[in-house]
Design a protein around this nucleic acid. Sequence first.
RNA 1: GGUGCCAUAGCUCAGUUGGUAGAGCAACGGACUGAAAAUCCGUGUGUCCUUGGUUCAAUUCCGAGUGGCACCA
Length: 303
Amino acid sequence: MKKTLIVLLGPTGVGKSDLSIRLAQYFDTEIISSDSRQVYRELSIGTAVPPLTDQRKVKHHLIHSHSIHEYYSASHFEDDVLKILQLLFREKDIAVMAGGSMLYIDAVCNGMDSLPDTDQKLRTELIRDFDEKGIEHLRLQLKRLDPDYYAVVDLKNPKRLLHALEVCLTTGKPYSSFLTRPKKERPFHIIKIGLNLERENLYERINRRVDRMMEEGLEEEARQVYSLKHLNSLNTVGYKELFAFFDGTGSKEEATELIKRNSRHYARRQLTWFRRDKEINWFRPEQAEEVIQFIKNQILCLK
RNA sequence: GGUGCCAUAGCUCAGUUGGUAGAGCAACGGACUGAAAAUCCGUGUGUCCUUGGUUCAAUUCCGAGUGGCACCA
């Protein structure tokens, strides 16, 4: 029988973690976190890592599995998850993946085109070029090296330009030549469950959760990694705002409000992304019974 | 009780020498292929407190009312 991956997704703070434990317990399986920041072992409070009591109930994967010093990406995540699933599916028919990192989820469900590893030195050089000469310099280079991608890329988005240039310069081939995007076939079924709430309720939950994080000591957690604030892994809601406070830019209260706002913005971006995916079956967070029933029916159909 | 000031977007406020209005923040929509909790693009959502008057025309000027603030009693 073909195995099944249950993908539980939704905006930040909607209640994915709680339901993921219910599902994993019900289907007697384990949870893979699809969260781009929970992988870092130095971060816990600000990334809303499930409490140890929950982690003891059900085995979790890809939580605290890496260091903020490591270079990690959606593609690494894809590899990691596929490896974990391969092992897990030897014993279980079902696995649960829960989290809200859109690109990471996509990497697992559809795959990413394989690209060469990026050279950190080249990236640093390109960023310096960008800082010194401006975005127009990046555009001109890309126009020459990859006119096809130049025609479709967001020319105002430095990250897109930088990454395409990196690939062009390391391989000597246009970046767009790697973007074949064949949706990769997975050796398992995927059932996507989306959780959502009315916007107002969602925002209230997010705001309350940020207050709770502050009570639990987010400030101290951020202070411990403050000296590393330049790391990409720390360009993260909940930390960057506190770093600004430590730098003397604004008060603690202002930082807290910014964390709330940026979390709300993040939730909106997640919903924009998810809205496009017609494979998602939407539920409310309290509909655990309905979700379980739905999954059971789906699995019957898939047999 | 008296005097003065204020009332415009969800909030803080600007403005219209009378021709139905615009900033910041908030909010909302979108993009997204190895940095993605990142990065980037877009959108004004309004009984201009109520009510009389003047006027071709009032959010704007005048009167009254209501509410708020300050000062004086």
